[in-house]
Write a protein that binds this DNA or RNA. Structure first.
Length: 388
DNA sequence: TTTCCTACATCGATAAACTG
DNA sequence: CAGTTTATCGATGTAGGAAA
């Protein structure tokens, strides 16, 4: 059966008139009778628009820098572009931004030590191949820039040029293109700050996109975005089905961001049967992650452990994760003592994520989360048993 | 990670019943 | 009679697991 282009308007044979009806919150309502199908359809459209969308006209405000951790900034003009960077490309971009003085007026060569990208571990043979393609990808990025007062003009510029990888020095260097520079430095309005530590810890390119987008929308939260626009800005052509998009992009990204300094929730607005818009409620966590691990008294030795161990950002993430999973301070400490190295810590985060998700969604009520978590960790890291 | 599959939920269209 | 609600059906979107 062909779809009625005038939804909600149907011909009533017994009355020889067009009937308008629409469902609200699952309840079908009659909206009167009309002589034409178009009129009936318009009645439906109008009735639907009753909870009219609030026009957001607040002007953009300058975000205050929170805390003393390093931040990078970019104009919202750049953020609201459908560019698709790989994870490595996105990280390199962040590192370049970090090297860029905020008051720079001309494009200079920026140098990024490779170890900031990949850590102290040496880069294997294939590692350089990845880097090559990442730099190529970055060099190929084009952005569309606004042309003031001229609606029909069009300005497309490369993001960077002259990217260089010097394996001898262990550096990457390059220039931002002069056209783009005004959107990266001397920013006065409509720009967004990102935390370098957060950005570099992000594990998926989609989350990167979400990070900047949601951060730039935070000041006008709640924000309602049409699904088509959201997809365009985050995953582009992928996921023709919204449910696939939600599962593979939206949910993982929001979950990962909530592990960082965000508190994001969202509501789906449906148009008919399909999800039409997504309303985000975005907040930054007031008190992020405690910098220090508070250690309990060591009763056996009768001494006060006064160790003030500075935790790496990754260790802090593991700490908060385990705290969410209701582990005691002692258990958290034990895990952090035994599990060392970026790879291992990341593994902990990865392993415990499903547990946390199940716990938070109450998929397994009545379960002892802490015990389950410890069992899981002990099976993955036998050393935790050994140190018992 | 992405696509496919299936049970299920919800929608619009329609006929029919209800109300004053 | 005119307007509205109820019951039902086929179509289509969705959730969640399986398969690729």
């Amino acid at each position: 059966m062909p779809k009625n282009p005038f939804a909600g308007a149907t011909f009533d044979k017994s009355r020889q008139k067009w009937k308008a009806q629409a469902r609200f919150a699952g309840v079908l309502k009659s909206l009167g009778y009309y002589n034409t199908q178009v009129e009936a359809h318009e009645a439906v459209v109008q009735a639907r628009q009753q909870p009219a969308e609030l026009a957001i006209t607040r002007r953009s405000i300058v975000e205050a820098s929170g805390g003393n951790s390093p931040t990078v900034a970019q104009s919202n003009v750049l953020i609201e572009q459908p560019w698709a960077l790989t994870l490595v490309e996105a990280r390199i971009f962040v590192l370049f931004l970090q090297q860029l003085p905020r008051d720079e007026t001309e494009s200079r060569r920026l140098v990024v030590p490779l170890k900031e990208l990949v850590g102290a571990t040496p880069i294997g043979g294939r590692g350089y191949q990845y880097l090559h393609s990442a730099l190529e990808g970055l060099a190929a990025v084009q952005v569309t820039l606004p042309v003031p007062n001229r609606q029909h003009d069009w300005h497309r510029a490369p993001l960077v040029h002259s990217m260089k990888l010097d394996s001898g020095q262990g550096t990457i260097s390059g220039y931002f293109s002069p056209d783009v520079l005004p959107y990266l430095t001397n920013l006065a309005e409509n720009f967004t700050l990102g935390q370098v530590a957060d950005l570099l810890s992000i594990k998926s390119p989609t989350t990167h996109r979400f990070y900047w987008l949601l951060k730039s929308w935070e000041f006008r939260s709640p924000v309602t975005v049409p699904v088509a626009r959201l997809k365009e800005l985050t995953t582009g052509q992928a996921y023709p089905q919204y449910s696939d998009y939600r599962r593979n992009a939206l949910i993982p990204a929001v979950a990962e961001l909530n592990e960082l300094s965000f508190e994001i929730s969202y509501k789906e607005h449906k148009l008919g049967r399909s999800v039409d818009k997504v309303e985000f409620s975005i907040k930054s966590k007031a008190r992020p992650i405690p910098k220090q691990l508070i250690l309990p008294l060591d009763k056996e030795k009768g001494t006060v452990v006064t160790v003030v161990s500075e935790l790496t950002p990754l260790q802090q993430k593991v700490q908060t994760r385990l705290q969410k999973l209701k582990l005691t301070q002692a258990q958290v400490k034990k895990v952090l003592d035994v599990v060392v190295g970026e790879e291992q810590l990341t593994k902990v985060l990865k392993e415990t994520y499903p547990v946390l998700r199940d716990f938070e969604t109450k998929a397994k009520p009545g379960e002892n989360v802490a015990a389950a978590t410890m069992a899981l960790l002990k099976s993955t890291f036998p050393a935790i048993w050994a140190s018992n």
